[in-house]
Write a protein that binds this DNA or RNA. Sequence first.
DNA 1: AAGTGGTCTAGACCACCTG
DNA 2: AGGTGGTCTAGACCACTTA
Lengths: 261, 261
Amino acid sequence: MDGHRRLWCNAGMPAATDVDAAAAPAFSPLYRQIKALLTQALQAGDWKPGEVIPSEAELAQRFKVSQGTVRKAIDELATDNLLVRRQGRGTFVATHAETQVQYRFLRLVSDDGSADRLERRFLDCRRLRAQAEVARELGLRSGDAVVQIRRLLSLRERPVVLDELWLPGAAFKGLTAERLAQWRGPLYRLFESEFGVHMVRAEEKIRAVAADADAAALLGRAQGAPLLSVERVAYTYGDRPVELRRGLYDTTTHHYRNELS
Amino acid sequence: MDGHRRLWCNAGMPAATDVDAAAAPAFSPLYRQIKALLTQALQAGDWKPGEVIPSEAELAQRFKVSQGTVRKAIDELATDNLLVRRQGRGTFVATHAETQVQYRFLRLVSDDGSADRLERRFLDCRRLRAQAEVARELGLRSGDAVVQIRRLLSLRERPVVLDELWLPGAAFKGLTAERLAQWRGPLYRLFESEFGVHMVRAEEKIRAVAADADAAALLGRAQGAPLLSVERVAYTYGDRPVELRRGLYDTTTHHYRNELS
DNA sequence: AAGTGGTCTAGACCACCTG
DNA sequence: AGGTGGTCTAGACCACTTA
């Protein structure tokens, strides 16, 4: 129709400084503005994980753009794994509560390719004050309340992963050791259904480290044995960090699988 | 116009058996058929890495489809990193010979985020007969000729990566130690410009291992020190494996960075 | 100014799912 | 049968690059 209805929609963005002015995109195409609106709706919780969002036709009408433009916005959100399209059914908010792919972010696979059943065992769950480093990674201030969880994952009766993780205390109020003990399924499913926190993406730093006495005992390995250290920061809508996790993987019969392209 | 010009273009596919018939897609949309044609052209070397491919309009005319359909095919090839679009200039065949992003597949970054200059030192380059495992990973037969290379990467004067890699001898005929010694730049750039082998994607298996005497000496670490083992199989057009690589990373001041989504 | 990719639209029809 | 996403088309115009 008109070809450029540019709203310069930069809601939520900090004011541009001289420094980043150069890096800022000159303009946003319409479909990106629609994408931003949809993202806001997701962040605001207008549609919950697992639910259907309105049809493309309806959204087009609502935003007064063509269906193709809405479509392109949804396309990007789908490749970002925020939405899931299902032909003939509709478009759904991505969720960790699907029967498929239980552990979307766990890249550990067995060397022989077999799919093992995974067993969880929680070691402890405490509320404490965040140390400087934990606070920084979670976007909190030192001394803010955090929940610390430690747990062990086993494959074929053998402990393979020792996880230690920190969550912002404010967002995870009712999270207790009892609650964890009776929970069946991935943690991210619990976080999503009980605390309304959906993990969108994560960044990991991977290193090889020597097992300390504690890790060695829990994983049934010798002290000093090489372990894979996987430090993860997970983000929810709006790129807000909401989990810091440090995993120690025993990689004698399993490995961390990655695809490069 | 017609809406479905389905050619059932399954060139190169084995005949469907009863087993995989269920998994086989019922039909290919037109843009996927175009995508397949473009992929074949890339594989055949019709357009070399770094070169421009014909414009969307011309391809549309050539294939007798609308520009939008060509566009969607190119979109997918661009997200697969086979093509690179440059607004106003054209669409180019992806290459490792760009001044930007020298090491597209190297995920090792320094803990403090600084970008170190990288130094290469070749240890040796031999032609030998493939062992069973190497042959299997490269799609060769045991005893086929392979080239074995070992080299050391250093950051800030400190050796950090010990790589050992195998290439199919047939495709890398003139590859000698001298050739390597005088080469400046990433190996994949050499492979591409001198041997016409472009790496498209790779799979990595990551483990923590203890340094053996050899690796310890070369990396300046104690024997038994934990190292990151990164086993990579790299593929060229048509998903044909053309490189097996095993890297040992010293992760005391660096880490392997990964994004999950 | 000309050429390329990028955006937006409107409409037709297909494939898939659910009632 | 009706609704949803998926494909395809044709045309207009915008943004960017090069000459």
